[in-house]
Write a protein that binds this DNA or RNA. Structure first.
Lengths: 237, 237
DNA sequence: ACCTCTAAGTTAGCTACCTAACAGAGTTGG
DNA sequence: CCAACTCTGTTAGGTAGCTAACTTAGAGGT
């Protein structure tokens, strides 16, 4: 259990709580492992539990319609929490949340967390800041989806994922990336091949390795840099 | 001044406050008229004042980069407030906010509003619900920008604007719509002509009239309906 | 009545990306 | 070791919407 000593808490929101706040929540936090592809929440479903990802885990927030495949509007790792919107005053979520990089998280009942949130302390403030950061991510994605090429978007996306996991290698197929980006699988294959030929990444049958972040940053559209800067400013990285 | 009697308050957040809350804020609220094209906030600028639009006024939230023109990620009318993110724990905004339909709003110092927000009453809860609603709007726009045609997006956008103003007619040029949608002006002109020929709208030199909402709803992508439903659920319309 | 501006109509040519295949290569399981 | 499956490579053909013009038409000012 990553509890008790603050240094061992792998989630940044939990790590930022006061001792008293943490002690109130600790008895209710339960370490859970989240496997690849798990759908934690789905559109308009009620949220009963909230998850604080550790720094090996990544969740994707997706938006959809009845006729379209769902596409990603943002990702959350150990800098935030999954299911945040249950704290904003409504019990359902407008997003599907998918475990993109498997790992562990601390799970808590929504009602318990809401009670602590209502106290208005550090938890409250951190959650609102995180919400703000995630909002900027979604906003920038809206622009990016409209104006930027598959190549720029793919590089941005890889950097965003890489920032949130411990390893340079993670499980990822072209098909999955295409679905997240709302692009065609063949377009992603062509683009990924280009990026691989440039030596920035290597991949094979669902395992992707980041080799050259600088190269990816040059390939990415500006959105990566913009969102990263805002995250730093808002969350005091 | 739309003060004192609750029935006269044209902004839904203010109208939903308790009598005590409203009385605390009232001395600090100042009615202001906002003219077309005013930029209330710009990227990464500090927010000193927050605005509660009356139901004749509409603000656009834009996202941008250095190299691209700014595009819209959502709109806010009398259901919300402009400058909400100053309440989420950081003084700057990631959005440019532009007055799209001119009208009036109640203006208040950010510091005063923040103090009331921290009390944790109705204002607090309403602002968070509004934030949630706006988040769903931005998320859906991210999908819409990626997957839907100019025609669907334009119809969606017209309905979204129309929902938030009193009149069927409002000032709007093709060029402006194109910039909001992140589309080309000529594409918008072609599409607008089609919609006009169908009898759903009429326009001339910057004045647009909505003639047939049902027609527009048929032309729009699903995003309009989805976001409208979520707004109703979240804000209890 | 004329000039100037801004809004909207229109067109030709281009391109990034999509759709829809099929092929090959690695991986897993019986 | 073979079958079945998953992941990636690749290609041909189509198209929505872009770029970049030029044209036409109201509206306002002098």
């Amino acid at each position: 259990m990553s509890k008790n000593r603050n240094g061992q808490i792998k989630n940044r929101i939990l790590a930022g709580l006061t001792h008293e706040e943490y002690e109130r929540l600790a008895p209710h936090l339960q370490e859970t492992s989240l496997s690849l592809g798990t759908i934690l929440y789905d559109f308009d479903e009620p949220i009963t539990h909230v998850y604080f990802p550790n720094n090996d885990t990544l969740g994707s927030l997706l938006t959809g319609t009845e006729h379209d495949a769902a596409i990603e509007i943002g990702v959350t790792g150990s800098e935030g929490l999954l299911g945040f919107c249950v704290l904003l005053g409504i019990e359902t979520t407008p997003h599907r949340v998918l475990i993109q990089i498997p790992g562990t998280a601390l799970k808590i009942k929504a009602a318990v967390l809401r009670r602590e949130f209502r106290q208005g302390g550090r938890l409250h403030d951190s959650v609102l800041k995180f919400t703000h950061a995630l909002f900027t991510q979604a906003s920038q994605t809206a622009l990016c989806n409209r104006l930027h090429s598959v190549e720029g978007r793919l590089a941005r996306w890889l950097l965003t994922v890489h920032d949130r996991v411990e390893s340079d290698q993670f499980p990822l197929t072209h098909d999955f990336m295409a679905r997240m980006l709302g692009a065609n699988r063949s377009s992603v294959s062509l683009t990924a091949a280009t990026i691989q030929q440039a030596g920035y990444i290597r991949y094979s049958r669902g395992k992707l390795t980041v080799l050259d972040r600088e190269g990816l940053e040059d390939t990415s559209c500006d959105c990566y840099r913009i969102v990263k800067k805002r995250y730093e400013d808002i969350l005091n990285y």
